[in-house]
Design a protein around this nucleic acid. Structure first.
Lengths: 216, 216
DNA sequence: CAGTGTGAAGCGCTTCACAGCT
DNA sequence: AGCTGTGAAGCGCTTCACACTG
């Protein structure tokens, strides 16, 4: 419905939702855009603008009802229903992600693990049997997998991404240290941890001269 | 030296460096900005502009010498010297990161692991003894730690970040599912995996209507 | 009066287009 | 001719400021 929403705004909506969850837990009932801004590392104007892309959620002179706004944000982000996710690549990182409690806590259910290594296939990881990639399409359908998390080696990333797309999965979170490009109709989010370190390294070399609480 | 460089440009420089590494390995000697752009998911104009923040690296009419440009980028990003990093939090994720081969391969050496849990302290993780957080300042100095990777629970993230700053470490890569704000003089990079999933979830709900190869 | 919703101004990044080397 | 380096134009996000409302 919204005509044009900046990606950065969506990112911030996630943070607002998180901040509101905390406030709700603390028993706060009402909050102003300025307060949300403070807690989410922005400002009130930005918060109001971001919300305005999706509707009117506040009461003038009063602020926002915490639980109400949070529910709205969850609806916007599609967080009301849980999502099933598959982890592809059962190496160190993949294995750790299978057991990462944060996913389950926020409604993302890891329901399948895949790997191509015959030595790994069949073994169990936190109760999930590791499946061969050949079964991806089948399992994606039967287990209603919405998102694939890629924890595969660099050289395999793009190939696997394409197979994920063929399997009908329309969202990919890529941890391989290579920027993969999205097959048509698929959303890709690249999280190259090594690049993040390189990025930090840049600021360290600038260091002495201008380093002052950068962010990213 | 550069007056004002967009953060996005730095991020792209990391990708260019990566692309050039591949080209170098493939034995390519010369490359145009247009080619780099294609390989790094941008365009030639962007590549040239990004490079122009730091100097003149190309030959008109010819392009760039791959190995030469790559060396220049590595210098800009501070990648010539290795960097020692500490991992804080020896849970699932932290443990996996200690063993992540990508770090070492790109010149980031994991030289210390910390955790506050007495049950974990003293145990070994890939040859590294898990140390208590109380020793952070001491070890940061003796082992010349440049970057701290936080893999701690949500509630501890900000507190630990502040202690990292006190220990004299000036760069933090934060994996806790909470946006932490940087102590003065410290660069922070927040990589909340759960938020990434929420971000993807948004596009899935938009889905039917407008989903077409988004990126992030 | 306190605080939202929003058009408009401001600003920074990206894209364009072309002069200038090779 | 081919391709870089770059001022200037274009564009989109953020910030401002204020009308409006409870």
């Amino acid at each position: 419905m919204p005509s044009k929403v900046p990606q950065a705004a969506i990112r911030r909506l996630c943070r607002y939702q998180q901040v509101l969850a905390q406030l709700e837990q603390d028993g706060v009932e009402t909050v102003s855009s300025a307060d949300i801004g403070r807690l989410a590392a922005t400002n009130g104007a930005q918060v109001r603008k971001d919300l305005s892309y999706f509707g009117d959620f506040g009461r003038r002179g009063l602020g926002y009802k915490v639980s109400e706004l949070r529910a709205q944000l969850r609806a916007i982000l599609g967080l009301e229903r849980g999502r099933n996710v598959a982890i592809i690549g059962a190496g160190n990182l993949g294995s750790a992600l299978v057991g990462y409690p944060g996913f389950e806590m926020r409604g993302f259910h890891v329901v399948a693990v895949f790997d191509n290594d015959p030595a790994k296939v069949g073994r169990r990881l936190r109760g999930l049997r590791i499946l061969p990639l050949t079964r991806l399409t089948e399992v994606a359908a039967t287990k209603d997998i919405a998102i694939a998390i890629l924890a595969v080696p660099e050289f395999a990333a793009q190939i696997v991404a394409d197979r994920v797309a063929e399997a009908g999965i329309r969202a990919i979170l890529n941890f391989a240290p290579r920027h993969i490009h999205a097959p048509p109709g698929v959303v890709v989010c690249n999280v190259d941890m090594t690049s993040q370190l390189e990025f930090l390294s840049y600021f360290l070399t600038q260091g002495e001269t201008e380093l002052e609480a950068e962010e990213c």
